[in-house]
Design a protein around this nucleic acid. Structure first.
Lengths: 149, 149
DNA sequence: TATGGACCCTGTAGCCACTACAGGGTCAAC
DNA sequence: GTTGACCCTGTAGTGGCTACAGGGTCCATA
């Protein structure tokens, strides 16, 4: 047989077959040859490229960045400054997210720590979310019928 | 005029009008009365509920959790154990994300630190992504035409 | 030779939480 | 009466897949 099946490279790279077809559809992975029965037949080049995509994704690079990294990887004589820039930008993004989530965690932990396990009426968590009622009892307006589908 | 416009409560809560209409569509915010010109006319209850949603979202609660929190907030005599559970679950999720991103950050930083700003051919970042070529030159298979729209 | 089951194919729709139009209507000020 | 800011509905798009539905292919076994 003249190549690997999609299930084979899926197993080898830890990627689902649907995802591989998706990568082909969006032009990230080149369309492979087909067998007589219309099965995709991948070669080593595909396997390498898919591994690359997979590792980049595991490192959290968005697909656009992966696309750029792939096209940069092909120009072996060029400077890798562009590669460095993409990676640094992603690192900065990851660090920003960590910082944001840290703030969130502290806020949440602070709110939860105040909960005395009483009734909802004096629950600190609800209180932290509800707009502090000036008159004492601001009713939250709830939907009478759910508009879902 | 018999109520606030959508633009008004949008401004007051820092939510976009489209988002408010979206919340109405999915049954999170009750449909308000309408004016003669078919404009939505919100009351204080709506404003309170939207503020609640907004704060919960700012704390990162997914909409399903917000929905539950809202329905719990209405039963003032019940125990707030369920509220506490939702909040703790969310906190755990946030902490998990922080941990995951921390691992990612360290990996990225390690890779980037090795970049010597030379050519792509010996770029450590590309090397970290590419499958270590056994024969020396494994070409990454790139798509000849991009299948995009 | 029949058949079962594991795999493969295409195409479409769904997930989350919005966001961005297109194509129109309303309202108040000038 | 006309401008411009707002409002309406409905649909489609975002990222990165994932999950079908409804079929076809391939190979081993009975």
């Amino acid at each position: 047989m003249p190549g690997r099946t999609i299930g084979d490279i899926a197993k080898r790279t830890g990627t689902r077959a649907e995802t591989i077809r998706y990568y082909e559809r969006i032009g990230l992975l080149p369309a492979p040859a087909r067998t007589g029965g219309n099965y995709r037949a991948y070669d080593e080049g595909h396997l390498g490229r898919l591994s690359f995509i997979r590792r980049a994704r595991d490192l959290g690079f968005p697909l656009d960045a992966v696309r750029e990294l792939l096209s940069l990887a092909d120009r072996r004589d060029r400077s890798c400054a562009a590669v460095d820039a993409i990676a640094r930008q992603h690192l900065a993004e990851v660090e920003r997210k960590i910082a944001d989530l840290g703030v969130l965690r502290d806020e949440l932990a602070g709110i939860i720590g105040q909960c005395r396990q009483g009734t909802i009426a004096d629950c600190r968590i609800i209180e932290a979310l509800a707009p502090h009622p000036p008159g004492g009892t601001t009713r939250l307006n709830r939907p009478d019928r759910c508009a879902e589908r």
